[in-house]
Nucleic acid binder design. Structure first.
Length: 380
DNA sequence: ATGATTTCAAACCGCGCTAG
DNA sequence: CTAGCGCGGTTTGAAATCAT
């Protein structure tokens, strides 16, 4: 067999050092089929090239490749290289917001892949399929992900602005959220921050693309026990667990002056209880109180909030906002327009028995824009 | 006691140059 | 073209030293 060249042996040595934490010099010499003395010189050469190789003496001693300040040239075996390329492809196509960086990394990796591996990787081209053919996922700034990940890792409290999808008027910007970030997770191609909300004293799941961090990070916190044990179970339970409003962070109860059958048609997720021919009780959930109020507000009927108070507050807030919007447009003049085929809800007594077509909500779920359809339909 | 480190000398090998 | 020679780099072994 050919005697490998010095440089080839150096690369082999580097590969060995990367593959395991500690290597006694004698073991390295055996693997490389050279004398321990040669290993010693090779280690010196690698050190001169900038690889931080630490040696410990005594029993159980050996060589170790430390994590350096800069990324040294890496060596991957075939399986590692293919796994890396496939993972990068997934990141590129998942729309998780790091696609661009992943694409550049993939290009770099692909460039140096041996031809046989490049063919394997190209044959394994992966495509992350969008769930339900929905709209493309919003982009998350990689810097935001880095900030969130760092806060989770350092167990530092975090403040951030959270953009509520239904909010359109920047008049009253909600105060920043204060949370203890516990986990950064992906679900359905989106990034979520699982955190303990310090103001609401409860667990919350925040969409990362709606988060704008407000540095600096707060004090350190001691992690809490996540209900259900691990993150996977928690997130799965929250997003896809038992059907019903329980999976939403904001759940409310209200009475709507409409037939139960009608309401249930537009609230697949809610629990509808018939209280009378034109009256029902609805328990529904959404991502935020305003969005829950807004989606229920689509029904052209009177609503009575049974609870919680946050939902009533959200209705009041929306009412003020809608009033301002109307005043701004019409200068406070009376409104001759009718907002639905059945007119105002005051006419419901006479028009109540109209056809179903006359009872379309202002925004039928099927035609609603993403933000609204999400809230009563399926997880975002 | 074990194993890394250092130093030194010797042998080996590939390469380029030059003379025949 | 081939053989001889010198040079530089590499490898090896041995011995002494240092650290755990």
């Amino acid at each position: 067999m050919d005697m490998p060249t010095t440089s080839a042996r150096l690369l082999a040595l580097l590969s060995l050092l990367q593959a395991r934490r500690d290597w006694p010099g004698a073991l390295l010499a055996a693997r490389l089929e050279v004398s321990p003395r040669t290993v010693r010189r090779d280690v010196d050469r690698l050190r001169e090239l900038g690889y931080p190789i630490r040696a410990t003496k005594g029993p159980d001693g050996g060589y170790r490749l430390d994590a350096g300040a800069e990324l040294p040239p890496l060596l991957f075996d075939d399986e590692q290289a293919v796994a890396l390329a496939v993972a990068l492809q997934l990141a590129v196509t998942s729309g998780a917001g790091i696609g661009e960086a992943a694409a550049r990394a993939l290009s770099t990796v692909r460039q140096v892949l041996p031809a046989r591996l490049r063919h394997q990787v190209d044959a394994l081209r992966v495509t992350a399929v969008e769930r339900r053919g929905g709209p493309s996922n919003p982009r998350v700034e990689p810097a935001v992900l880095v900030t969130l990940g760092a806060a989770v890792h350092a167990r530092e409290e975090l403040r951030f602005d959270y953009a509520v999808p239904s909010r359109s008027a920047p008049a009253d910007v909600p105060p920043p959220r204060r949370v203890q970030p516990h986990h950064l997770v992906t679900w359905g191609g989106r990034w979520y921050l699982v955190a303990w909300d310090l103001d609401r004293d409860d667990w919350r799941t925040f969409r990362a693309d709606r988060i704008t961090p407000r540095p600096p990070a707060g004090p350190r916190f001691t992690p809490r026990e996540l209900p259900g044990g691990d993150v996977a179970a928690f997130v799965a339970q929250r997003f896809q667990g038992s059907a019903g409003p329980d999976r939403w962070p904001c759940r409310g109860e209200m009475i709507i002056e409409l037939p139960a059958a009608f309401v249930s048609r537009f609230s697949q997720d809610g629990i509808v209880e018939e209280l009378g021919p034109d009256r029902c009780r609805l328990v529904a959930g959404s991502w935020s109180w305003p969005s829950l109020a807004a989606t229920v507000g689509r029904f052209d009927a009177d609503i009575e909030v049974l609870g919680p108070p946050e939902l009533a507050d959200a209705f009041a807030m929306l009412a003020r906002r809608y009033a301002r919007a109307a005043a701004g447009q019409r200068g406070g003049a009376s409104t001759p327009g009718r907002i639905g085929p059945t007119g105002s809800s005051a006419a419901r007594g006479s028009a109540a028995r109209g056809s179903a077509a006359s009872r379309q909500p202002l925004l039928p779920a099927e035609a609603a824009p993403d933000g609204l359809a999400d809230n009563l339909g399926s997880p975002p």
